[in-house]
């Protein structure tokens, strides 16, 4: 299935070569972590994923989701 993956500026500022958005074919059993590797995002930089508006852990499956956003961070406090 086609999944639209969005990569936040907080990650792109660290790895500038990454696109802002990319659509990939990926099976729904794959985890978000695997999806990240698929599009070249170092999972270590992902603080959280937001899948169709809901925060998800990286070991959760991509499932039927259409929009995946990977967020980095610029600090906690």
């Amino acid at each position: 299935m086609a999944v639209s993956i969005h990569i936040a500026d907080t990650i792109r500022s660290v790895v500038p070569a990454l696109p802002k958005q990319v659509t990939v074919e990926i099976s729904k059993e794959k985890t978000l972590h695997e999806a990240a590797l698929e599009v070249g995002v170092p999972p270590v930089l992902i603080v959280f994923a937001i899948v169709d508006g809901v925060r998800k852990a990286l070991d959760e499956p991509v499932g039927e989701s259409a929009q995946v956003h990977f967020y980095g961070t610029m600090a906690g406090g």
Partner: peptide
């Protein structure tokens, strides 16, 4: 912004797991 619903609920505490992970 997806972070509007994804970041706000936990606020700054939301990075705790990641900070530990790295």
């Amino acid at each position: 912004k997806p972070g509007f619903t994804g970041w706000t609920p936990e606020g700054t505490a939301g990075i705790t797991d990641w900070i530990n992970r790295v």
